[in-house]
Amino acid sequence: MHNPYLPYPVRISDIITETEDRNLKTFEYVFINPEDEEKFDYQPGQFAELSIAGKGEIPIGIASSPVEKGFLKFTVNKVGLVSTHLHNMKVGDVMGVRGPLGNWYPWDKMEGKNVVIIGGGFAFTTLRSSIVYMLANREKFKEIHVIYGARTPGMLLYVDELKEWEKRDDIHMHITVDATDDPDWKYNTGFVPTITDQKAPPATTDTYAIVCGPPIMIKFTQPVLDKLKYKHDHIIMSLENRMKCGIGICGHCNIGRHLVCKDGPVFTLDQLNKMPKEY
């Protein structure tokens, strides 16, 4: 019987410190057994459990994209026991990855449609995966907008890629920071909801918004999307809850009858409106 709790052994192949506060690092992994990579067949929006022997497991969104082969990438905020230990690990160290887990953004529904990505802070990881995926399959989508904000320029993730995407004419980038005194900052200044109000395209039946960010950003972005007349089944969100098994068995992450790990993490706002606010 296949054991769904058993992680694939992986080796850390690269570590990038993403932000000026040094609390966010991106870890790149390679599979120790090459055949495991084929089994790890994922979609943008899914997550995995990062497993460290002796410490435990943490559920983290997959930041790499299925169109990138040979490695997996996860950006991890230093918060608790496992993430703190992970931040002290080095390139070459061995650990485990278990997944892919959960559902994903509705790529079949979004094919041939406009996609507006709205992200804030370090919740940009699976959004990065999505952007890389959409750019590699550019003909499958109509207009792509990205509104992404952080507190300061130094808190933005994947800065080099953001700059590259800014230069392209097949994706509308709206990068913003809450505030900065950096004279070289040439992008937007203002909170994500404000920039959404100014830059997001108006709602159509062919336009989907993917919203991912801290609760405060989500709280103030929703009225803006309502004002722009986005239908709640066209607003897609990704949730987090405390998890253990990641496969819908241990019971930790439920919201009503739904389990964030297995029925989510991706839900439409329409679905969330009918669920308890237990996230």
Binding site: A53, G54, G56, E57, K244, C245, I249, C250, G251, H252
Partner: peptide, 10 residues
């Protein structure tokens, strides 16, 4: 009741 936690013990 079936809920469980997972812990490592070294």
């Amino acid at each position: 009741c079936w809920c469980f936690d997972v812990q490592d013990e070294t």
